[in-house]
Design a protein around this nucleic acid. Structure first.
Lengths: 167, 167
DNA sequence: TTGACATAATTAGCCAGCTAACTATAATCC
DNA sequence: GGATTATAGTTAGCTGGCTAATTATGTCAA
C-alpha cells in the first residue's frame, strides 16, 4: 500500500470534482485518510516488530499457533487464516523454522500434510513480543474512549460491506 | 500489509489478555479491524485500477501530475508526494513513459534534474479511469452519511496522533 | 483396482517496494 | 579557481508478496 504523503486538499478535490462530476468529495477524502492512517499504522507495527526480528507475516503465524490448544496447525490452514498463499506460507515457515521458533513434524494420518508446531523458543519469543506490542498499542489508542472505538468499528463494518462495489 | 482473514474473537483476545495483562481488548480489536478493512480496500482499489492497466503507484503519479497547473513535476518531488523512494519513482516513471502516459523532458536550469510531463494520452487515461474510480468509490461509501464520515475522519485523526507511540 | 481427478506442500520465477552505491551536476568555501 | 560537499537521478541487488508448475499422496467411480 502506498504511503500517501500528499492527500488532496478540499480545494484540489473540488477542482477534480468539476472535471469529474461523479466525485463525492467527502467519500474520497475519508477513503484516502483511512488508507493513509492504516498504512502508517502497518509500517509502525513492522518497525515495532522488527526490533524483535519479526515482521507481520511471521509474527502472525506465531500468534495463530499459540491460539491452538495443541500449539500446532498445518501450512494450508495457517495460510487461509493469515490471508496469504500457501507458497508464501512455505516461506514464512522456512524463516521461523530456521530461527527455531516453529518446527515441522510429519503428520501421521495424511502423508501429504505437515504439522507446524510452536516450539518453546517460539512461545518464549511471543512472551517478549506480545507485552511490548500490547503496551504500545494501548498507548497508541488511548485517545479513543470506548464510545469512539464502538463508532469506529461500526463505521468500518459499513465500509466493509461496500467493498464489493469497488471491485 | 497482511490480509488478515481470521481476526481474533473476543474470546481469544480475553484468553490472550489473561496471559498478557497489558492487552487492551477493544483497542486491539479496533486496530486489527482497521488494518483489515484498509487492506481489503487497497486490494479492491488495485483490482479496479488493473482493469485500466494501472496500479496504485503509477495511478497516483498521474494524479499528482494532473494536479499541477503545468502538468509537470520532477521525480524527486513526485517521490516525496507519493511517499516512495526516488529509486521506486524512477521505476514508476519508466513504466508510465513506456506506455506513453508521461514523458521525460530535460530541464533547462539544473542539468541534474528532469521534468516529468503528463502527455495527452496520460490525461486521456485519467479521463477514463477517474470517473470509473469515483463512481465505484461513491457506491462503496454510500452507506455512510455525512455525520459518520466526519466521525471517521475525527477518529482517524486521533489514531494518527497516537502512531508515534507505536514505533 | 486402476485411471482420473483432487489436495498438500514446495519450487521457480515475476513484481513492486526497498537500501546502498554510483554518476553527473551544482553549490560552497578556502 | 579548485577541493569539498550536497543534490538529482539512476542502477544493482535484496525482500516479501504473488502465480503457475511440480511432486507426492489421497479419493472416488467405472
Amino acid at each position: 500500500m502506498l504511503q500517501l504523503r500528499d492527500l488532496p486538499t478540499t480545494e484540489v478535490l473540488d477542482k477534480f470534482a468539476e472535471r469529474y462530476p461523479d466525485a463525492d468529495v467527502s467519500a474520497v477524502s475519508s477513503f484516502l485518510q483511512l488508507l493513509r492512517v492504516a498504512t502508517d499504522l502497518s509500517v509502525a507495527l513492522d518497525t515495532c516488530l522488527s526490533k524483535h526480528d519479526l515482521l507481520q507475516g511471521r509474527w502472525w503465524v506465531l500468534i495463530l499457533l499459540m491460539r491452538e490448544e495443541s500449539r500446532t496447525s498445518t501450512p494450508s490452514v495457517l495460510a487461509d487464516k493469515a490471508g496469504v498463499t500457501r507458497a508464501t506460507m512455505t516461506g514464512l515457515i522456512d524463516g521461523l523454522e530456521q530461527s527455531g521458533l516453529v518446527e515441522r513434524v510429519f503428520a501421521k494420518g495424511d502423508r501429504r500434510s505437515v504439522l507446524i508446531s510452536l516450539t518453546d523458543a517460539g512461545q518464549a519469543k511471543l512472551d517478549v513480543v506480545m507485552p511490548d506490542y500490547y503496551r504500545r498499542l494501548r498507548q497508541c489508542m488511548q485517545a479513543l474512549d470506548e464510545e469512539k472505538r464502538t463508532q469506529l468499528q461500526q463505521i468500518l463494518g459499513l465500509i466493509n460491506l461496500g467493498i464489493p462495489a469497488l471491485i
